[in-house]
């Protein structure tokens, strides 16, 4: 192992971290909003909305992400004149927007199932109790259903976030220079696959370790009812006063 080379490689790979994080966080955040919508469509009780969401989830979970990225970035290029006429070409021309769109649509499909599981795990008694207090539908959702569902879904959602951090590496195939893109460039320049792999792998492991820590901290913060009561303040001993 050549440590000088590895240190240099590491510094070059670090330059890709902002883009990796940018893609991961933007797609997880936008995907969560879309997933919430899909989960509510599944649970709406309206057959048309339910089947639309089912079909969406089936298609996006049943095909590889790379195919989805290619379909959006290269495939839609076939309709360039129509897209230009619609004024959308600036979006589908940029690999960044295409990668972000594909990652968002993909994570929304997986996350909607996680959120649906969380929403369905809310105990019925809690909903009845809230209704009995006269809460409106929206207040009930905001105060009772949503917080409980989020807490239930969080561990599974943590796994999905890690999958997304890993999935951002596919953006390198459509020329985005995030960590894997830089790693690929370095490997093809130097042919030292093992050293570059170790450095890039260490960066992803560190990122994913931080994600798991953050999710655990959030879980702890959201479940005060599972923690022990705070230790009582030491009592003053009256006899000595």
């Amino acid at each position: 192992m050549d440590f000088a080379f590895m240190a240099e490689t590491f510094m070059k790979l670090i330059e890709g971290v902002p883009l990796t994080l940018n893609l991961a966080f933007a797609s997880v955040a936008l995907g969560a909003l879309f997933a919430m919508l899909l989960a509510l469509m599944r649970l709406s009780g309206v057959a048309a909305l339910d089947w639309l969401a089912r079909g969406y989830v089936f298609v996006f979970r049943g095909t590889p992400l790379l195919v989805q990225i290619f379909l959006i970035y290269y495939g839609l290029g076939q309709f360039r004149p129509s897209l230009q006429a619609l004024g959308l070409w600036w979006f589908f021309r940029e690999p960044y927007w295409c990668a972000l769109l594909a990652l968002t649509l993909n994570t929304a499909a997986y996350a909607s199932e996680i959120i649906r599981g969380g929403l369905q795990s809310v105990p019925h008694g809690q909903i009845e109790a809230a209704r009995a207090c006269g809460m409106s539908r929206w207040l009930l959702f905001r105060r009772i259903v949503f917080p409980i569902a989020v807490r239930q879904a969080l561990p599974a959602y943590g796994n999905e976030i890690i999958l997304m951090v890993k999935a951002t590496s596919l953006a390198s195939i459509i020329t985005m220079m995030e960590v894997t893109g830089i790693a690929h460039k370095l490997i093809s320049q130097t042919f030292r696959a093992v050293e570059v792999f170790v450095c890039a792998g260490a960066i992803y492991l560190l990122l994913n370790f931080l994600v798991t820590r953050a999710v655990l901290a959030l879980e702890w913060w959201l479940s005060p009812h599972l923690r022990g009561a705070p230790a009582p303040a030491p009592r003053l001993e009256a006899a000595h006063v």
Partner: peptide, 13 residues
């Protein structure tokens, strides 16, 4: 914990 694509590059190169 690491992307599959990196593993493929490792094996290929």
């Amino acid at each position: 914990g690491i992307p599959d694509l990196l593993v493929i590059y490792l094996f290929y190169f």
